[in-house]
Amino acid sequence: MTVLRNGVPQPNEWVRVADDAPLPETDKVIVSLERWQAERVNLRQRNAAIGVALKSEQSPLLIQDDLDRLSLVALEFPKFTDGRAFSHARVLRDRLGFTGEIRGFGQVLRDQYLFMLRCGFDTVEPAAGKRVEGYAEALKEFSVFYQPTNDDRATALQLRHRKEAVAA
């Protein structure tokens, strides 16, 4: 399975483990919210890195007390038109101060990639059969942004007034 980071396809270092499968000792693993909640005490003590996958109807507030232990939160796009994960990523970053990796997975298109990065996603794992080409190009489609988010891209508004300050 391929993961996209900065538009570039890379091998996936994380293993998604089914709820009824044993956890590999040393791999970086992603478990479902249900498993995390059921085995929380044990999983918190695990040595290797761990992440939790949330379905689009599962709010990140459900894991807010565990974010100190989680290296990754994966947010699902069950359909590419279900945009809840965009808000969930912002809640994770801006409200809950999560600094680990945020991954989008499922039915994603390159046309959403820039939006995802602006909302705080780091990586994208398209569902099997989805194209992984074109993500690097998608990053270059826009140079102007109107909305301030907490990424480091300057908005049109900031650039306008920076320009005026320089001119003055």
Partner: peptide
Amino acid sequence: RQWSTLHPEFSYL
């Protein structure tokens, strides 16, 4: 208009 144009969070409502 500017705030709502290609809003990264609110384009898949």
